[in-house]
């Protein structure tokens, strides 16, 4: 079994916080770029953070799209003692997707076979906080979940989330990110659906058709005077904007869509703040109880504990 020990020393912790501060909005920083490219090993190796925990960081900060999450990162890193194993924190954080009293998916899955299968997955994640769980047990939990959900289209998104939760985070740390992405998508869909000015099915389809048509029209107009490669994003958006504004009827669809997106983003920000708060609470609670924290000065790289 391999463990990651956070930071190694105080200097490393300060350097991680400073690094994030210096790079500005997280959207432009290495956390996002590396995680999208699929390689977050830099964060794990240099700062001793469990790969699953490292992958949660961009998700918890909304990939920088909605806000500056630096104060949250600072508080979170401050709550993690030097030398702590952040694997358990990652597992507890992903469990929120099921257990959170306000936003957890347990709120929307009715009693029955699917719920029982979901609870089976949750039990395995809980078990994995303290001891390794056999690969066969994860597979069996997924198989049970799939069988129980067969044909239930209404729970498709939640089942996808729970299927992502049913992985050993030591072997597949990216599953933590899958869970958060699925949870974000579910919350976002609910925010859109409950909007005061939600599009009807017909309006949604019409908006998408108009948007695609206008994008094509703009690209064709710009491509008449230059090569496709030389067209900049800003000038493309400028032309797109002109075409929308020229037709008040279809521009009204865009206005409504933008207003709805702003309202949904506000709801997502409330959700994210709640989850960030809960993750900080978990960190404070769990690390206050831990006694196996290593002293300062231990190198942050992975330690092979297989002989223990």
């Amino acid at each position: 079994m391999t463990a990651f020990r956070a930071f190694g020393d105080e200097r490393k912790r300060a350097s991680l916080i400073a690094d994030i501060d210096a790079k500005g909005p997280i959207y432009a920083a290495w956390l996002t770029r590396e995680s999208v490219a699929g390689d977050i090993s830099l964060v794990s190796d240099d700062y001793g953070l469990h790969p699953a925990f490292a992958r949660l960081l961009p998700c918890l900060g909304a990939f920088g799209e909605a806000e500056d999450a630096r104060p949250f990162y600072g508080s979170l890193f401050d709550a993690i003692p030097t030398g702590a194993d952040t694997g358990a924190l990652a597992r507890e954080a992903v469990l929120l997707a099921w257990t959170d009293p306000t936003y957890g998916r347990s709120k929307i899955v009715p009693q029955g076979a699917v719920r029982e299968a979901c609870e089976g997955v949750v039990a395995l994640v809980r078990q994995s906080i303290d001891a390794p769980v056999d690969r066969k047990a994860w597979r069996a939990a997924r198989t049970r979940l799939l069988a129980s959900a067969s044909g239930d289209a209404g729970l498709e998104k939640t089942v996808d989330l729970m299927m992502s939760l049913a992985w050993d985070l030591d072997q597949a740390p990216g599953a933590a990110q899958d869970v958060m992405v699925a949870w974000t998508a579910g919350i976002n869909a609910e925010a859109d659906a409950s909007d005061e000015d939600a599009f009807s099915l017909e309006e949604g389809e019409r908006f998408e058709i108009e948007m695609n048509k206008i994008n094509e029209e703009a690209m064709e107009a710009l491509a008449q005077s230059r090569s496709m490669d030389s067209i900049g994003v800003e000038e493309f958006l400028e032309v797109v904007d002109r075409i929308w504004v020229a037709d008040p009827v279809r521009n009204d669809l865009r206005r409504r869509s933008r207003a709805r997106r702003e309202r949904s983003n506000a709801k997502m920000a409330v959700w994210r703040a709640a989850i960030q708060k809960r993750v900080l609470e978990i960190a404070d609670r769990s690390f206050a109880q831990r006694t196996d924290i290593m002293p300062e000065g231990v190198p942050p790289e992975t330690l092979d504990l297989s002989g223990i």
Binding site: R142, T143, V159, M162, M163, G174, V181, A182
Partner: peptide, 17 residues
């Protein structure tokens, strides 16, 4: 694709499936 999605598809073609 997520790991969940992949597992959901592939597990139908292994073991008992």
């Amino acid at each position: 694709v997520s790991r969940g999605k992949l597992a959901g598809v592939l597990e139908q073609f292994v073991g008992d499936g």
